[in-house]
């Protein structure tokens, strides 16, 4: 019980620190983000209502009130999920814009993360078990090579060759333009078809982490005494590798998997933008290019908080799975 309480306290503290940091960053920056945001808001041609102005000021800093009062307003706004209006998209609140984009990112990046974890871990198990063979070299060198690719660059290459040159995949978007997102089989099929290239990009560039992590753990575990003992007992090679070694070597990778899931929402900014995918990453870049600070702040907060929540949950699960952790 003490373990869980301590984790909870730690989580609350980190959450508070992250939220506060999100408050401080725009106020530390040179120039006046508020002025820039307001003039930008006026430049969009909408009539700037007093409420919109106030929302911007609460998030980015008010020139006249004290910092503490601003901080209080900011915290209250967050608790009510009030983030003001975005001016990148007309007549849409920041909250609605984010809610519309989040499912796309969660499905695309979430699925890619799971696929990369499963494929990478299996490859790592095999490479570690059969180390110093041709397969081991091919797996290790191949995944390492692709991990050196900036994801957006691999995305561009795939887009050019498979999309533009050979017309095998669509060039942009999360679905065929004109289609209305709803839950029918044909729309889902269309969405999956559009997500293949970005998903391949994300999987291929992140494979190496899982492969190398698992391979190293396998090799370390294979050197343990109990493996030698199992060999001396005449157990079959494959039984040892899968039941004795892989199971024990898996734990660090599982921790990593938790972290990777936490990074899902913020993990694909450039890839989404390359493929014109309607997710959080594209929204963030839209906000950045339009100097849409309210939207930018809210997205950054969402990315951070989702990371923290996931880590918290993973920590709790870990405590349940491995009693040793609770003791420390």
């Amino acid at each position: 019980m003490r373990y869980f309480l301590r984790k909870l306290a730690m989580f609350a503290l980190t959450l508070w620190a992250a939220v506060t940091l999100n408050f401080i960053i725009p106020r530390l920056m040179p120039g006046s983000p508020v002025q820039a945001a307001l003039s930008r808001l006026a430049g969009t041609g909408q009539t700037v209502t007093e409420a919109m102005k106030r929302a911007v000021e609460i998030q980015l800093g008010l020139p006249h009130t004290s910092l503490w009062a601003q901080y209080g307003d900011y915290l209250i706004g967050i608790m009510h999920l009030r983030f003001g209006m975005t001016y990148s998209i007309t007549d849409v609140s920041v909250t609605r814009a984010i809610l519309a984009a989040a499912p796309w990112t969660i499905v695309l990046v979430g699925t890619s993360t799971v696929i990369a974890f499963v494929i990478g871990t299996l490859l790592g198990v095999y490479a570690g078990w059969r180390r110093q063979t041709k397969v081991d070299s091919a797996v290790t060198i191949g995944s390492t090579f692709f991990s050196a690719f900036p994801p957006f660059f691999l995305g561009l290459l795939l887009l050019y060759f498979l999309g533009f040159k050979y017309h095998m995949f669509p060039l942009t978007g999360g679905y065929t333009p004109g289609a209305v997102p709803h839950l029918t089989l044909s729309f889902l099929g269309d969405a999956v078809y559009h997500s293949i290239l970005p998903a391949v990009t994300l999987v291929v560039t992140s494979l190496a982490g899982w492969v190398l992590g698992m391979r190293n753990n396998m090799i370390n575990t294979l050197g343990e005494d109990y493996v030698l003992f199992a060999e001396a007992n005449g157990l079959r090679d494959r039984t040892i590798a899968l039941l004795y070694v892989a199971r024990n070597a898996l734990l660090p990778n599982v921790t990593g998997f938790g972290l990777a899931l936490g990074a899902v929402i913020g993990g694909s900014v450039l890839v989404e933008s390359i493929f014109g995918y309607p997710g959080i990453g594209s929204l963030l870049l839209l906000a950045v290019n339009n100097r849409d600070y309210p939207l930018m702040q809210a997205i950054f907060l969402l990315i951070t908080v989702s990371m923290l929540v996931t880590i918290f949950v993973v920590d709790l699960l870990y405590g349940l799975l491995d009693p040793r952790v609770r003791g420390t």
Binding site: A18, L21, G266, V269, L284, V288, I299, F300, I303
Partner: peptide
């Protein structure tokens, strides 16, 4: 736990 690239993008956008 702060997301690396988004953080860099946000800071660069303000600067």
């Amino acid at each position: 736990v702060l997301p690396g690239l988004p953080l860099m993008i946000v800071i660069a956008a303000y600067l």
